[in-house]
Design a protein around this nucleic acid. Structure first.
Lengths: 122, 122
DNA sequence: CGGGATCCAGTAGGATACTG
DNA sequence: CAGTATCCTACTGGATCCCG
């Protein structure tokens, strides 16, 4: 099978697309950025990420833990206390994401203008 | 209403999440990276992005056009010919995306290891 | 050739109730 | 407090047929 450059690029793309899909869901980013400052507990996160349900927060944290982006620490107190902290991997991700955040902030307005114009013309 | 720093961060996050969601869908990245090299025609793109249906390619291109990321040029020949090219905005996006691509390529293996380990333990 | 229109399946995400 | 379990809805993506 031929290892032409276009094919290589597309292979890379699928790998990148997977990451983008993981990190680009509705809540992951907000949780990661929140945890960048400090570890937090479940309901603490829930309070700061407005609109998220306990269901989705559970799923989001579990997926992040599975990928090794956050570490889950259970303290066997009563009531139980669970801390979530970003791992080194999670922190390393936040760097390229910030690049994209810069881009999004810089071009967000233009994109929305483009959409308005497009929707007006069509 | 208070304009505390956490709130500001979360506002940014939603904007970034929106971009990630747009760009992180199943096909957008592959199309954008393919068009980075040169403009291409509809079926030309379809051939290079293996697995994409004409339906999804149509939708993907239309969304990219709406956001001002690609420019659509129709030549009224018979048969009709339509060229798709990346705009300056589209090109500018590909830069931070490449940063993320680097990250994905560098850490993809570790992430998959983390998942295997997690799935084994639980 | 480059789509539009339609239908259909799978999954992401939301609401609520319950539990150790 | 920190979840699990259940149900439901909406959106994404795929397949097919048609049209200028």
């Amino acid at each position: 099978m031929d290892v032409t450059k276009p094919l290589q690029v597309l292979t890379d793309c699928r790998s990148v697309s997977e990451i983008l899909n993981r990190v680009g869901d509705k809540w992951t980013m907000q949780v990661v950025v929140l945890l960048r400052d400090q570890p937090r507990r479940f309901n603490d996160i829930k309070r700061h990420v407005s609109g998220i349900s306990q269901q989705m927060l559970t799923r989001t944290l579990k997926t992040l833990e599975r990928d090794g982006m956050v570490e889950r620490t259970v303290r066997a107190t009563t009531p139980p206390q669970v801390d979530y902290a970003l791992t080194a991997l999670g922190h390393s991700l936040s760097e390229p994401v910030q690049q994209l955040a810069q881009w999004a902030l810089a071009h967000g307005v233009i994109i929305h203008e483009n959409r308005r114009r497009y929707d007006g013309d069509h």
